[in-house]
């Protein structure tokens, strides 16, 4: 599904990704761990097509080169990023935003757009699965949401948009114990043999719930170690010092 070869990314003269290789197949869950500032969010941004990076190397997504595609085209083709810091958009109703989003993607995929009523039913169902109070849907997007509420809102969007590749950037940070479990359940219930996950995290506790097929350590813009789910457990004990 995703093949990254020798990826380099530079922004504002800062060389962040320095030759990164990664392959993800449908049905797989990959975890990326690594010290602060090692380039994890940069990788997520480069994959989703944020502007401003100077890029070298090659990224293929389902056989197609990503470099020519805009951010929205990538989203329309099934790449989803749950933001480390979700943005607030004042004056824009959460429900309206999510419906616009779902319909933009449906339209691009040649599907019929959902009318307000059908969408409301759908979103209420997904929200209740995640224990999100309906009241949030009529609030302004992310405005005044607590850190954890914002993260849950990202997962709600993931469930609505049904992406093929979901990148979660520290979605577990800031979640309380119950919320962590709900979010993990959300991921597990959505996981199937056709979609894949790239989960960026600092903590093993999320990986206790969502068992990754691979754990990678990113340091200084490169993947320096790859292992199975045991690697996460080991890192939790020893930290990065021994391997970096």
């Amino acid at each position: 599904m995703l093949n990254i070869k020798n990826l380099e990314a530079t922004i504002d003269n800062k060389h962040i990704l320095r030759g990164l290789n990664l392959d993800i197949k449908p049905g797989e869950v990959h975890a990326i761990m690594g010290p602060n500032g090692s380039g994890k969010s940069t990788l997520a941004n480069v994959l989703s097509g944020k502007n401003g990076y100077e890029i070298k190397g090659d990224i293929k997504y389902n056989g197609e080169s990503l470099s020519e595609l805009s951010t929205e085209e990538r989203a329309q083709k099934g790449i989803f990023l749950a933001f480390q810091y979700p943005l607030e958009i004042p004056g824009v109703n959460t429900n309206t935003f999510l419906r616009t989003s779902v319909n933009s993607i449906r339209k691009a995929q040649g599907e019929k757009e959902l009318d307000a009523l059908t969408f409301l039913k759908l979103i209420k169902e997904k929200a209740s699965e995640l224990g999100i109070d309906e009241k949030f849907l009529s609030r302004q997007l992310n405005v005044g949401f607590s850190g954890g509420e914002k993260k849950k809102n990202e997962i709600l969007q993931m469930k609505l948009l049904q992406p093929k590749l979901s990148i979660l950037d520290e979605t577990d940070s800031g979640l309380d114990i119950d919320a962590l479990r709900i979010v993990a359940d959300g991921v597990n219930s959505y996981k199937n043999k056709n979609n894949a996950f790239l989960i960026i995290t600092h903590y093993q506790r999320l990986l206790d719930y969502i068992k990754p097929d691979f754990v990678h350590v990113l340091s200084n813009g490169k993947i320096i170690k790859t292992g199975n789910s045991d690697l996460g457990v080991q890192l939790e004990k020893t930290g990065y010092l021994n391997i970096v």
Partner: peptide, 25 residues
């Protein structure tokens, strides 16, 4: 904000319209 909207599948015009309408609400 524009990047966030684009990531959710909205093109540039849709994103601007949404943000501006929010601003004017």
């Amino acid at each position: 904000q524009l990047y966030y909207c684009n990531q959710r599948g909205l093109d540039q015009e849709e994103a601007v319209s949404l943000i501006v309408n929010g601003f004017c609400k």
